[in-house]
């Protein structure tokens, strides 16, 4: 049986970028079903009503529960938060046709000051999203930055920002602290996106398809320079290595002695 969980290099990429994007992993018929359910209001109401329950208990018999059983969706969630995560909340994001204003860039969880453990948010796109439709914009690599929710709205544009343009059935899994916003919809079609947040119920250690990789290969991933990093480039790398140690259970892992050279104070 093929192991669909994230590979070591894919997980390392998540550590650096804060996102895992899987294109067209939800079958078209299931996309159509959930889209109709969303339009019919099936996922409306109090989005925090069931917070704390198991994810597998949500929306029994619905299209969305079927989506959560799609093998790749299950495998990626298991890689990031374990096999049986806790449901946090969800939201049907809807951008009406011609809504050019969109959102300001923001971070969802300023109250979450965990240094290593993290929640996962997943953005499900059940119809094609063109550039003009203004799909969710992410700033890859911004998830280590501690900011206050909407204060970053003063940044109208940041070099490195990436808007989601995708086919139906695409899912973006992202770190809960990643900077993001929904963009303006310059088309005559309503844009839908289903957002889901889940919490790990286990320590997030080697939940992915872990294999040893040469340090040199991981170093290339962890020393990536995001265009907006500026003076924080090296601090970003230190944060990535700290998260990698947590995810692999190897408290002494390092490359080019980023941490080792400063951990010898007796």
């Amino acid at each position: 049986m093929v192991d669909l969980r994230l590979t070591t290099s894919e997980m390392a990429s998540f550590v650096t970028q804060g996102t895992v994007r899987c294109d067209e992993i939800v079958p078209p018929e299931l996309c159509a079903r959930v889209l109709e359910e969303m339009k019919g209001g099936a996922y409306g109401g109090d989005i925090f009503k069931n917070t704390g329950e198991l994810l597998t208990e949500q929306w029994p018999g619905s299209g969305m529960q079927a989506v959560l059983q799609v093998p790749k969706v299950r495998a990626v969630l298991e890689s990031l938060v374990g096999p049986d995560p806790r449901y946090d909340h969800h939201a049907v994001h809807l951008s009406p046709a011609g809504n050019l204003r969109g959102q300001d860039i923001h971070q969802d969880a300023e109250y979450d000051v965990r240094r290593t453990a993290f929640d996962i948010q997943a953005s499900f796109f059940f119809h094609d999203v063109t550039a003009a439709m203004g799909g969710t914009l992410f700033l890859p690599g911004s998830h280590y930055r501690r900011v206050r929710v909407s204060a970053i709205g003063r940044y109208q544009n940041i070099v490195g920002q990436e808007q989601t343009v995708c086919k139906a059935g695409t899912v973006v899994f992202w770190h809960h602290n990643l900077w993001h916003c929904g963009r303006g919809n310059n088309t005559d079609q309503t844009r839908y996106m289903f957002k889901l947040r889940v919490n790990a119920r286990v320590k997030q250690e080697r939940l992915f398809n872990y294999t040893e990789l040469p340090v040199a290969e991981l170093r290339k991933i962890f020393e990536v320079r995001h265009p907006f990093s500026g003076n924080d480039e090296r601090t970003e790398t230190l944060n990535r290595i700290r998260l990698w140690r947590y995810l692999t259970g190897d408290a002494s892992w390092d490359c080019t002695s980023w941490w080792s050279r400063i951990e010898n104070e007796l």
Partner: peptide, 27 residues
Amino acid sequence: DSRVVGWSFYDGASQQDREAHGVEVEP
């Protein structure tokens, strides 16, 4: 003289509402 990594613009002469953020690609 360092390179631009982000930018914002506010226009006191315009009566138009600001467009969505993240619209422009090049600084």
